[in-house]
Amino acid sequence: MAFREKLAWVTLGAMLVAYAIYFSLLAATFDPAGPEGPQTVRMIVLFAAVTIVQAVVVAAASAVLAIRARREAQARPDERDRAIARRGAGFAYFVLMVGMIVVGVVLPFDGPRWRVVNAALLALVIAEAVRYILVIVSYRRGWHG
């Protein structure tokens, strides 16, 4: 398996686990009828904690992968790596755009602020997941661009 494919697996896995935990805890603890201020602070602390843990896990796993495949990790991405990365980013852009249109145009009329913020975050997570899934699929099944 290519080093960059392994990196995509690690990043995707860590991101999905991290934000599954974040959204689950948020759904379990956030009270829409409660006072907004303290709950928003709790939400931000939870988000910061999840993001930091995710970043540390990805950094540690990337370091281990880089040590185990030193030459490959040091090599610059070649034309196939760049084409696959472009493909993933291109699809993810459209997913993000649709998500942001929903968040920016629909939600402000009938949703509280915490829901708008978390819907935007969810759109980002989905777009990133699409990017990494496409990268992995392209490495595994081939890419003719």
């Binding site: 290519a2 490959e72 090599a75 070649d78 196939r80 790596d81 099944r141 081939g142 003719h144």
Partner: peptide, 13 residues
């Protein structure tokens, strides 16, 4: 990269 050469040979790229 070696992986890209392998992908070209296998008709995957």
């Amino acid at each position: 990269t070696r992986q890209t050469v392998a992908a070209i040979e296998a008709g995957k790229y």
